[in-house]
Structures are given as structure tokens and as C-alpha cells.
């Protein structure tokens, strides 16, 4: 059977779905009225997905064996022009030797996928001189921003010289973020006994106010935090962008974020390999215009990159 006949037959056999409620029978009771099989032909989700140019504002390289190759395959299949990849330290002391090694892994991904995977360097502000040196080392080899994790909160004074360097470079600082019960200071009566220095929205508000000329990226609003809480909290911090990455893809997340933050502060992102579908799905099904989608998928992050001359043409 060829595809056309298969689909035709399938549609015919299920036409008139679905059941007679209250029929007293537990067997299927097909009715005679036509279901709207024609509706499907009007929407092609892959056509929609491929319609937009995309910059992935929060991605990773070499976080697992062979993961980067899988990431690149997703980039190819979903028309993601560039992914901004990092490899932050999530364990150990995060000393200079370790963060240099992690940045070298990121650079190896840049070399393997030139022009497609663009590096974001990591560091530990506890090591001030080594971190400043590491920023310059990575900028010199083409990396375009900072990704940091939970060694210190984003508003810790140890970060001040780092932020000042990033202001000079006109590059964004992407910090892991959560608004999860019992984490990082948020409602600690539910203490989850994990990552006490995790940055929460209030920490971003604080540092963004101290450095209004800096650019901060609140990581993965779909990656665990209470996204309503995060968006409401960050409403009045115009130099904090919110990336939409993460595996949690709750309905209405994007529409709510636009309502609270405006369209210009949202950045398309995936975060990890298991989030490519959700990264797209949550945006494509939002009640946004095509121009708004273009901003989220591409223009907003490209405007950030343009400040340092690293934008895409």
C-alpha cells in the first residue's frame, strides 16, 4: 500500500469518531459524521519549526559521551544556525586547572563545528586573577560570553571584578538559576539540602541593579524554576534576559513571560540534549506573532551579540 492510500484508508476508517456517550456499550461506536481530518493538513509542525532562523542562547558541549554529536544533529534538523555552548563546573573545587580544562573542551567543540558551536567560557570568581586571565584567553580564541554555575551567587562581591570585565567586553553573563522550593534561599523551610549558592531571581535583581550597564541571562526558565515566580520577579530588571531553555515545557510559559518581561528580553534556548523538542514546542504553540517568534528565536540574542561585534549577519 502506498502512503497516499494508507493515509486515505486510515482517515476513512476513523471518520465519524468517536463514540456515543451513554450508549451502554463499552465497544467503540463509530458515528457517521466526519471528523475534521482536513484540519491536520493545514498545520505542519516541521514547516513551522524550520521557518525561523535560530540562535540557541544556552547550550552545552561535552557534558557527556557523544552528546555533542547528538546536539549537532539536532541543530541540523531544526535549523539552529548557532549554539552557544559551555561546560560549567558542577562538581569539585572548580579550581583554575579545572575550569581551564572545561573551557578547552568547549574550544574543541568550536573546532569540530566551526561557526556553528560558539563557546561560552566558565570560571570561578574565587580565583580572581586566574579568572580574569581565563576570560581573555577565551575571548582571544573566539568565545563570546560567560557561563557560571553555583560556586557563588551572581551577586556575591567576588563576582564584581568579573562583571566589570564583562561590561568592558560588552558580553553577557549567563548564570544557572532556579526558583525551586528549598534551594538557594527560596523558602528554605523546604530545604532540599543542595546547592546553597544557587542564584535565585532576587540575586539577579540585586546584581543587575548594581551594574545596570551589564547584561545578565537568567538561565532556563523551563529548567526547573517556578517560571511564573521568576518572570514576575525579574519584571523590573531590564538588563536581565531570560532564556526559555530547559526540559520543562509547560503550556503558556512563553505567553506569560512576554506579558511580564516584554518580547525583547526572551531568548530561545535548549540547555541540554533532551530539551530540543520542548525548546521549540513551547514557542511554536505560544500565541505569538511571527515577528515575535523571530525575536525570541534569533533577533534578541543577535542584538546582544552585536554589542561585542559577534553577531550573525
Amino acid at each position: 500500500m502506498n502512503r497516499r492510500n494508507f493515509v486515505k484508508n486510515t482517515a476513512a476508517s476513523i471518520s465519524g469518531l468517536v463514540l456515543s456517550l451513554g450508549s451502554g456499550s463499552h465497544s467503540a461506536n463509530a458515528q457517521t459524521k466526519q471528523s475534521s481530518g482536513a484540519a491536520r493538513a493545514k498545520f505542519d509542525v516541521m514547516k513551522e519549526a524550520l521557518k525561523y532562523r535560530k540562535l540557541d542562547a544556552h547550550a552545552h558541549a561535552h557534558l557527556g559521551i557523544d552528546v555533542t554529536a547528538k546536539d549537532f544533529e539536532f541543530m541540523e534538523r531544526f535549523n539552529i544556525e548557532r549554539s552557544f555552548v559551555s561546560n560549567p563546573l558542577s562538581a569539585g573545587s572548580a579550581n583554575p586547572e579545572q575550569f581551564r580544562r572545561h573551557n578547552d573542551l568547549v574550544f574543541s567543540a568550536m573546532q569540530k563545528y566551526p561557526g556553528r558551536m560558539i563557546g561560552m567560557f566558565t570560571l570561578n570568581p574565587q580565583y580572581r586573577k586566574e579568572s580574569i586571565d581565563e576570560i581573555q584567553r577565551n575571548v582571544d580564541r573566539g568565545m563570546v560570553g560567560l557561563k557560571v554555575y553555583y560556586q557563588y551567587k551572581i551577586n556575591d562581591p567576588l563576582f564584581y571584578p568579573i562583571i566589570e570585565k564583562m561590561i568592558d567586553l560588552k558580553m553577557i553573563t549567563l548564570m544557572h538559576a532556579e526558583a525551586t522550593l528549598g534551594t538557594g534561599g527560596y523558602r528554605m523551610k523546604y530545604d532540599k539540602k543542595r546547592m546553597p549558592n544557587t542564584s535565585v531571581p532576587e540575586d539577579f535583581i540585586d546584581i543587575a541593579k548594581r551594574y545596570p550597564e551589564a547584561m545578565f541571562q537568567y538561565a532556563h526558565t523551563g529548567g526547573g524554576p517556578d517560571w511564573e515566580y521568576a518572570c514576575k520577579a525579574l519584571k523590573h530588571s531590564p538588563n536581565v534576559w531570560v532564556d526559555t531553555g530547559g526540559s520543562n515545557n509547560e503550556e503558556y510559559m512563553i505567553d506569560f513571560a512576554i506579558k511580564e518581561l516584554g518580547i525583547d528580553r526572551l531568548l530561545y534556548a535548549t540547555d541540554l540534549s533532551h530539551s530540543y523538542f520542548q525548546g521549540l514546542g513551547k514557542i511554536l504553540c505560544s500565541q505569538t506573532t511571527e515577528e515575535q517568534k523571530r525575536k525570541i528565536f534569533f533577533k534578541n540574542y543577535n542584538s546582544i551579540l552585536k554589542k561585542s561585534g559577534n553577531h550573525v549577519h
Binding site: 509542525v45 515545557n249 503550556e251 523538542f277 520542548q278 514546542g281 513551547k282 504553540c285
Partner: peptide, 15 residues
């Protein structure tokens, strides 16, 4: 639906 977005499950098939 309506807890998760409407299209991710569709993308997993259509891609």
C-alpha cells in the same frame, strides 16, 4: 495538554 505545551509531542514524531 494543557499542562505541557501542545507541540513537543508532535515534534518528536514529525522530525
Amino acid at each position: 495538554a494543557p499542562i505541557l505545551d501542545y507541540l513537543s509531542g508532535m515534534l518528536r514524531i514529525e522530525y
